[in-house]
């Protein structure tokens, strides 16, 4: 393999593979949404598109060697809020402004839970969009008898004023 490509893969793709995956998935979804003729395929594209973004969010909450963000040891309510403080001067590498002192929670041991929580909402939004879109396509199918966009447009043409 060409060394330039090799270094490119090593520097840009391997360490950032999660971004590459989400971008590729997103592009597949976008392609389907824009170019596909069948309305159902468009919706499939839409689902892929939204899932890609969910993947992106989920992947940014991940840390190496970190576990699930549930505080298992006793006295958890003692630690909540009071000891967690933010650091305004945090460097750009940090994932979260939350810096935790040694004697309380070790932030490296826990994955950042917030992106997951956000994605729960986003999934709900995505599902309702999909459900609504399916309902609309049902209505379209009932009145046009097809889900192919070009056929629908052909059926509309004679009566339209455009």
């Amino acid at each position: 393999m060409d060394p330039i490509i090799a270094t490119f893969i090593e520097d840009n793709i391997v360490p950032k593979f999660n971004y590459w995956i989400y971008v590729i998935l997103m592009m597949i979804g976008l392609y389907a949404m824009i170019t596909k003729n069948n309305l159902m395929k468009k919706l499939i594209g839409m689902a892929i598109f939204q899932t890609a973004i969910i993947l992106f969010y989920v992947s940014i909450g991940v840390k190496d060697t970190a576990g699930i963000p549930i505080i298992s040891h006793h006295g958890s309510e003692h630690h909540q809020g009071a000891t967690v403080h933010s650091e305004s001067g945090s460097s750009s590498e940090e994932v979260s402004p939350v810096k935790v002192k040694n004697n309380t929670i070790d932030k490296d041991k826990y994955a950042n839970p917030l992106p997951h929580v956000l994605m729960l909402t986003a999934i709900v939004v995505g599902v309702s969009t999909l459900g609504l879109a399916l309902a609309i396509s049902q209505k379209i199918f009932k009145s046009f008898g097809t889900l192919e966009e070009d056929e629908i447009l052909n059926k509309l043409r004679p009566g339209s004023h455009d």
Binding site: Q50, I53, P115, I136, K139, I140, I152
Partner: peptide, 26 residues
């Protein structure tokens, strides 16, 4: 029935728009 079709197109475009916004927030 035309409204249903327009609404469908709106769903597609609207989802793309909102998703881009979400990405930016990410």
């Amino acid at each position: 029935r035309r409204a249903a079709l327009s609404s469908f197109n709106y769903v597609i475009m609207g989802t793309i728009g909102a998703s881009f916004y979400l990405l930016g927030v990410g």
